[in-house]
């Protein structure tokens, strides 16, 4: 690793974007390595298809490349700006006519069948049983999160899995903080109602 690359590893995101805006592409490569996995997980939880999630990650970084000059580190954290781009990518994806509403459930069913087969191929034990139960609970959680209205789903994913604060979610969704509070309250209410039979307190 070169000295410059080593130094980039310790720079704040906003500083890296400033370097990129000054023409240093390696700064953007560092941004990519920091955010590839969290962005992938955000998209995967939103769309339910690994390949689609990976394509959306690629498209998001291309947008950062093309429109990175419009980012102002004095106005927002880079992560907030990035998730704002990612949230818009999701909205565009769901608006596209190519997507059928049942796709997510179909994909999940396929994934579950494959996982069940591999687990069942191993000798039966209590750990296998626990694994199967865990898979079933995960599948229920995925389906119920997927059933949330789009804006609620983005808000709850940004909060629970990406760890964004309300102010950041508000910026990413272009809405007031009060709306974020209500979106999260409604999302949690729906999740609890729909997962009632699975959640043990």
């Amino acid at each position: 690793m070169s000295l410059a690359a080593k130094q980039l590893k310790y720079e704040a995101d906003e500083e890296l974007m400033s370097c990129f805006q000054s023409g240093d592409n390696s700064a953007l490569e560092e941004i990519v390595s920091r955010y590839r996995k969290p962005l992938f997980n955000f998209f995967y939880r939103m769309v339910g298809r690994r390949e689609t999630a990976e394509d959306l990650v690629q498209e998001t970084f291309l947008k950062v490349y093309r429109f990175g000059s419009t980012f102002r580190g004095t106005e927002a954290k880079f992560s907030t700006w990035l998730y704002s781009v990612a949230s818009n990518q999701c909205k565009d994806y769901f608006r596209s006519s190519a997507r059928r509403p049942e796709t997510y459930a179909e994909e999940l069913e396929k994934e579950l069948a494959e996982n069940f087969e591999s687990v069942l191929a191993s000798p039966f034990s209590s750990s296998v049983e626990n694994h199967l139960i865990r898979m079933e609970l995960q599948a229920a959680l995925k389906l119920v999160i997927n059933s949330l209205p789009e804006k609620e789903r983005i808000a709850i994913l940004l909060r629970e899995y990406q760890g964004l604060e309300y102010k950041e979610i508000a910026q990413a969704l272009c809405c007031p903080i009060g709306s974020v509070k209500v979106l999260l309250f409604r999302a949690r209410k729906r999740l609890r109602e729909r997962l009632e039979n699975f959640i043990i307190e």
Partner: peptide, 23 residues
């Protein structure tokens, strides 16, 4: 309890790890 339940969905690695997004 809901928050604890949601933690059942762990982070996953992108499957095409070798294919870094190209700049």
């Amino acid at each position: 309890a809901l928050r604890a339940f949601m933690s059942l969905w762990p982070e996953e690695e992108p499957s095409r790890l070798a294919r870094k997004p190209s700049i």
